[in-house]
Amino acid sequence: METDPTVLDMQKKYGSRALMLAIGAGLLFLALGQKEICRGLVLGGVFSAVNFALMGQALRYRLSDNRKAATRRSLFSLLLRYALLAIPLVLAVRSDRFNFPATAVGLLMVQLVIMIEHGSRLIFAAVKH
């Protein structure tokens, strides 16, 4: 079973916007001389986008197998994604080159983009009325 193209489009849209937001905010901090915050935001943002992509890619495996296999694959994909998200956090806590709070915020970049998009849509609709 192939991943639905509309799902792929949505993943690309949110993933790329999350990266753009992370890089944009990172550049702003770089201009302010905060290199560690910039690196942390970009690192977290990259892993946030990869995690979201994996979430969608795992869907087809969950749906195409029998229940036992789907459960096994879902559990594996969940563990894989948590392990993946732990990488930038461990890096940030171990190295002075990355700011830890900025890395943690970067990991929530896809969620932030989703909230910003729908929040702004709601505000514009209210202003129109």
């Binding site: 639905d4 193209p5 509309t6 949505m10 949110y14 979201f52 979430m55 989703i114």
Partner: peptide, 12 residues
Amino acid sequence: GDIFKNMLVGQA
């Protein structure tokens, strides 16, 4: 497709 998209965003 729409349901999948919504599910994914909700899960995220």
